[in-house]
Design a protein around this nucleic acid. Structure first.
Lengths: 240, 240
DNA sequence: TGGGCCAGTTTTGTATACACAGAGTCGGCA
DNA sequence: TGCCGACTCTGTGTATACAAAACTGGCCCA
């Protein structure tokens, strides 16, 4: 489960005052993603509005966006509830992710600037060396992965694809909290990413897509092997 | 550009009273898709609320959903404007569509009920014969295409994939108004669809994906060949 | 004559008030 | 004691009023 870098609220980067509805959206989104609001939690409008210190009107807008993204689901006559997530959901998520990221990688191979991805390839190879060291810096590695994702998004140059992946990543970030990355997996992941970057730099869309598919397959297999079913914080199989 | 069947408001099927925000959403959505509200139209809140006979609050909810779907874009201090759409957008749309539908077809081949798709294959072959006749019924054909789409969605059994395709189809429906289908294209399309259905019935995901890719490629090429640039109702190249 | 600034106006953002619908509960009746 | 009905009460859906922000137009100054 390497490769999903959390997005933060715009306010974190630009200090300008945010609208109340935006603040509510990001606050709730983060609370859900961080599992502070576990699946099944009912989000009453008056209750949440009071908690966030805003009125119901902007809160409703925030809830509407969360519903649209699938992070919450309207529970007839009883407000909205935080959506559940299960191993079955993760599998489905990865099926969509594979489709989107393989296409992105293939397009990036055709349209991207080779130098950019060659550079990233070298960085991943260097990162793999670093991860073999005594004090592997996982955070720096995640940052690098985020840079590759952004570069691919950018090179693919497809607004709709980008937005579809943004929608998807919200859920992946949420799942990420369930995954345990170990040094061995990080090392393998670095090599896989180096392959992806290299294929894109080569302009070989077929190989880039294949490398992406391999990476995602391995990620999912690793995730499954961490046996989420035995984890108490993972809810039972429930539909979203 | 064969294969996108318009979705209708829930009220059309279930006569129960709809919330004002829902009505506003569907009304605006249809107005945009049908090009009654051309790209660039500014949708003032008070103006639209008055036009639809509702208050601003539910209207804002509707506009929020339209913005999230990309049908409109917020124009600071100037309300929301109907998003423009250009040939470049159509190409991007099809890149995303290819990724999603190929994946869907491949999954359907693995998980679907073969008999369902065998039946659809035969229906498409019969439709091809009918389209060769003197009075081709395009509407019946579109309905058949819609049935295949629904069957694939259903067989793929992936919530996220389904939702991503639903989001995409909104834009495709909108583009469809620009396309001119002719009998020859419809006939070819029927054969392509028969191939897709047959491959899924065979349980061959590879072939199903390839057949889907071919169909979408031909659709896009046909669309491009209708030369939308010469059509006056198509706006100039503008970003969405 | 061109650019920047200021005020008016329009439009959005937020808060509050009200109406309605559904669920849960309490009491009465069989 | 169990079941049915009405009632209450919580919570959402909608409307309206107010506040803040942004655009537009004009004016002044360089």
């Amino acid at each position: 489960m390497v490769g999903i870098v959390e997005q933060h609220a715009p306010s974190a980067h630009s200090g300008q005052p945010l609208r109340a509805s935006e603040r509510a959206y990001w606050a709730l989104r983060e609370d859900i993603v961080e599992w502070r609001l576990p699946p099944g939690t009912v989000l009453g409008e008056v209750e949440q509005a009071a908690r966030l210190g805003i009125s119901r009107t902007p809160l409703r807008e925030a809830l509407g966006r969360l519903n649209a993204e699938g992070l919450t689901a309207p529970h007839a006559g009883r407000g909205v509830v935080v959506a559940a997530i299960s191993l079955a959901n993760v599998t489905e998520l990865f099926e969509l992710r594979t489709a989107l990221e393989c296409q992105s990688a293939a397009l990036a191979a055709v349209r991207g600037e080779p130098a950019v991805f060659r550079q990233l390839q070298h960085e991943f190879l260097a990162a793999a060396d670093a991860l073999r060291g005594s004090a592997p810096d996982a955070r720096a590695y995640y940052e690098l992965v985020g840079r590759l994702d952004a570069a691919v998004d950018d090179a693919a140059g497809n607004t709709y694809l980008r937005q579809a992946m943004a929608n998807l990543r919200v859920h992946l970030v949420r799942v990420r909290r369930l995954a345990r990355d170990n040094p061995a997996r990080l090392l393998a992941s670095a090599a896989e990413h180096a392959n992806i970057a290299g294929a894109i730099a080569d302009g070989d869309g077929q190989v880039a897509a294949a490398a992406t598919r391999i990476h995602l397959h391995q990620s999912l297999e690793h995730f499954k092997s961490t046996d989420p079913h035995h984890r108490p914080d993972l809810p039972a199989e429930r539909t979203v």
